[in-house]
Simulated assay, not measured.
Amino acid sequence: MAKQQKTEQTSTETLEETQERLKSGGKGVPTPTRAEQEAARKRPLVPSDRKEAAKQARAKAAEARERARVGMAMGDDKYLPARDRGPQKKFVRDYVDARFSIGEILIPVMFLVIILTFVPSAEVQAISILVLWAFFAVAVLDCILLGYLLTKKLRAKYGDKAERVRWYAAMRALQLRPLRLPKPQVKRGQYPA
């Protein structure tokens, strides 16, 4: 008989009342049954307005992507890919961004050479190609020197636990400064300690 009265009481309660009662949970309130807890948590698998639900899901996903993009651009470790994480990689990024690398202007020089190859003079074309190869060789030598310096500095700072970062540093040094990701966090000449 008591069970019948209890089930009638729970069936007459609305969902809001049940949730309010579950939240209060203070003295004098009986512990809710499993059926009551499940009823309070129930929500439909398919929302009543599917278009609105899809629109909200897209907006939420776009907001998460924007947060991740801004976080990566600012160098937040949480949003960086695995290849860019860690204090040693941050040190390398800051060191590369603080110095001027010859490779930074490699892409503009290549565009200039492409334009010069349209000049009808064979001498101009040959000289421009030779200049490009010489510039490329200087950029490679600059990257080798950068890798040597960074390896030395990382060993001095981190000891035997220094990672191999020569390729990482070279690829960053060959990019135009405004196009680097994560964005440079230091100014030119502001070398890391």
Rank of each mutant, 00 (worst) to 15 (best):
T117I: 04
M110Y: 13
I114K: 05
I102H: 08
I102V: 10
I129Y: 02
F118D: 01
E104V: 13
Y148D: 06
V124I: 14
Q125N: 13
E123H: 02
L106V: 06
L150F: 11
E123I: 13
L116D: 08
A126T: 11
K152N: 11
D142C: 04
I144V: 15
A122R: 09
S101I: 04
G147S: 15
F118R: 08
L106N: 09
I105P: 00
L116V: 02
A139G: 09
F136V: 01
S101T: 11
I129R: 05
I127G: 03
L130S: 13
G103T: 02
F111A: 10
V109H: 09
K153G: 03
L146T: 15
F118S: 04
L106Y: 14
T151Q: 15
V96P: 05
W133F: 15
R99C: 08
I114W: 06
L106G: 05
V140D: 09
K153M: 08
I115V: 09
L116R: 04
A126G: 01
L145H: 13
G103F: 01
R99A: 15
C143I: 09
L116G: 06
K152M: 11
I114M: 12
G147T: 01
P120L: 06
F100G: 10
V138W: 05
S128I: 07
G103W: 00
L106R: 03
M110S: 10
K152R: 15
V124C: 00
Y148W: 10
R99W: 02
F100Y: 11
M110D: 09
S101P: 07
V109T: 08
L132C: 11
L130D: 06
T117P: 00
I129D: 01
D142Y: 02
E123K: 05
L141R: 13
L132G: 13
P120K: 05
L106M: 15
S101H: 15
L132E: 06
V140E: 15
F111C: 03
K152T: 10
G103P: 00
M110W: 11
A98L: 00
F136M: 06
L149H: 14
P120H: 02
V131Y: 08
A139K: 04
F118W: 05
I114L: 13
V140Q: 14
F111N: 07
V109F: 12
L146Q: 15
A126Q: 02
I129A: 09
W133M: 14
G147D: 01
A98W: 00
I127T: 12
V140T: 09
V96R: 08
V131N: 01
W133N: 12
L146M: 08
T117F: 08
V113Q: 12
F136G: 06
E123A: 13
V96S: 13
L145D: 14
G147C: 09
I105L: 10
P108E: 10
L132N: 03
F135H: 04
Y148G: 06
E104K: 07
A122F: 04
S128C: 04
P108I: 07
I102S: 05
A122L: 04
S121Y: 05
S128Y: 03
V131W: 11
D142V: 02
G147H: 02
I105A: 12
I107S: 11
T151Y: 11
L132M: 14
I102T: 02
L146V: 06
I129L: 11
